[in-house]
Amino acid sequence: MATGEVTSTEYIQHHLTNLTYGRMPDGTWQFAHTTEEVASMGFWAIHVDSFAWSLGLGLLFLAVFGIAARKATSGVPGGFQCAIEMIIEMIEDIAKDIFTYKNDYVAPMAVTVFVWVFLMNLMDLVPVDWIPHLATLAGIHYMKIVPTTDVNVTMGMALTIFAMILIFSVWKKGLGGFLAELSFHPFPKFLAPINFLLEGVTLLTKPLSLGLRLFGNLYAGELIFVLICLLFSGGAVLVASGIFLQWAWAAFHVLIITLQAFIFSVLSVVYLAQAYDTGEDH
């Protein structure tokens, strides 16, 4: 919380800064202690907090689903197995509807994306001060626990999807076919450069919008949680409204985090289906 020594700006800034490990201008590798230091570390720095949390949540996903897979029985399933199967079947059904081609990898990927992104988003519902405060007590200066509020994580996933789009496109259509698809419409062939430009932008928009949509939604959500938290440093009325707003925004956020995870997952499948889609003319 914003105590007397910390201004609101500093408080917000603190909450929006990742725990960054990188090379300082003076050549030493260490954790950044100020936002200026973070900015000075450049590309080779790593956001330890968001990466560690995303990794941990991913492993949690693998562990939980792995246990379900290990115990999976074709007889009468228990509640746990039912729950896992429901999630898997829900996403698998949708993925199979959208992605009608033969590829065994797409449905598991969609499930992984959905559950992993959901878990990462879920961290947004943990009150914003709990874990950062504990981390501060433990001597860690910065701690962002929602990996999807880190553009590196969302764009990392989106760019991986983009790479898959390119690979599948070239694999299914051939390099020439893929380039032809980009160049020969919407306008006639003699306007190929313009077509290529338009379609190229369309293509590049896919990963950008995919990654930035998730990032933007969660970043904004987190920011609003932080702003609501600022109210708790005010008077009784502000605290009361803060409590209400915290509850209301969290309740609303339950929808947002699920929806965003779902959208990310389904759009990934849609893009991959488009990459597979040959012989169409749109």
């Binding site: 956001h47 991913g58 693998l62 598991p108 499930v111 590196n152 764009m155 990392g156 991986t160």
Partner: peptide, 21 residues
């Protein structure tokens, strides 16, 4: 800040999806 985290995330993503698969 875009930094190396983006690549590590990609790798983690690939490993997780492959493990699931």
């Amino acid at each position: 800040n875009i930094n190396i985290t983006i690549i590590w995330s990609s790798i983690a993503f690939l490993i997780f999806t492959w493990s699931c698969y």
